[in-house]
């Protein structure tokens, strides 16, 4: 733990997310591992009051502390399985902390790759329902509708097709467009922009800048270091559930590139 950087509080800025010695342990259910999957063995297990053998506990976040301030755009980098997505889920409040805590001002919104809205409904239905679910009034929804369609920039006609027919890039664009229609206190973006093409990346960067200006903080998980360096003013490097480095994008990315030998 000695290499974990110290949390230094900047008293001149307004904190928006405080992560306090966060530990996340979650359970995974999988068919991997021993144990027969028959009804008889399941019944025996219940009688003996054993846990499911397929259940494993994963200690994904091992004590992370940091403070994010209003106006921050924080990039989160690290190798696969280092706990980046878990951290974002915890900040969004979707995974309960095992110990420690996450304190936020306002409601964080997580935008992930898998966040398909309603696959069996058409794109335009998803826009309307998504806006209404976020708490926009019908009038605001109507006002935002064209902007969302324009920003998502789907092929003509696709807006009336069910979302299950969309390519992953199209789906990601539409989801990002819907989520960006409202100002968020804290926006967590988990690889959602990875599937977009170059043109969309440019526009989403502009949108992220705009969201940053409007309100709180933006967290961005991406494997593309260029995107992080361009978009963020601060980078957190995670390694095996711990905070390895936290600071200026160029310094952290340089250290990360050196360590991973890219």
């Amino acid at each position: 733990m000695s290499d974990a950087p110290e949390v230094v509080i900047d008293p001149t800025r307004e904190p928006i997310v405080v992560v306090d010695d966060l530990h996340i342990i979650y359970r995974v259910y999988g068919s991997a591992g021993g144990g027969k999957g028959t009804a008889a063995s399941a019944l025996l297990r219940i009688l003996r009051r054993q846990n499911r053998p397929q259940m494993k506990e994963v200690h994904a976040i091992k004590g992370i502390s940091f403070v994010a301030y209003r106006g921050d755009a924080i990039g989160v980098i690290g190798t696969n399985g280092s706990g980046k997505s878990t951290l974002l889920k915890a900040i969004a409040g979707l995974l309960p902390p095992h110990s420690g805590g996450v304190y936020t001002q306002g409601q964080p919104s997580l935008l992930g790759v898998n966040a398909a809205l309603m696959r069996d409904l058409s794109g335009d239905r998803n826009i309307v329902l998504g806006c209404l679910a976020m708490g926009l009034t019908p009038e605001e929804t109507r006002a935002k509708y064209d902007e969302i369609v324009k920003f998502a920039d789907l092929k003509p006609g696709f807006i009336h097709y069910p979302m299950s027919t969309y390519s992953s890039g199209m789906g990601a664009r539409l989801r990002f467009a819907i989520a960006a229609a409202r100002t968020h206190d804290i926006l967590l973006i988990d690889e959602a922009l990875a599937t977009g093409d170059a043109k969309f990346k440019r526009r989403s960067k502009a949108k992220i800048d705009e969201l940053r200006k409007d309100a709180g903080a933006v967290f961005l998980v991406a494997h593309n270091l260029d995107v992080i360096e361009e978009t963020c003013n601060r980078v957190i490097w995670m390694d095996d559930g711990r905070l390895r480095m936290d600071g200026d994008p160029r310094e952290v990315i340089a250290a990360y590139t050196e360590a991973t030998g890219k």
Binding site: I16, D20, G93, Y103, T104, Q105
Partner: peptide, 13 residues
């Protein structure tokens, strides 16, 4: 940190 968060009006996520 928890007290710091509370002082700035931050709440559990």
């Amino acid at each position: 940190l928890a007290e710091f968060a509370a002082r700035h009006g931050l709440t559990q996520s």
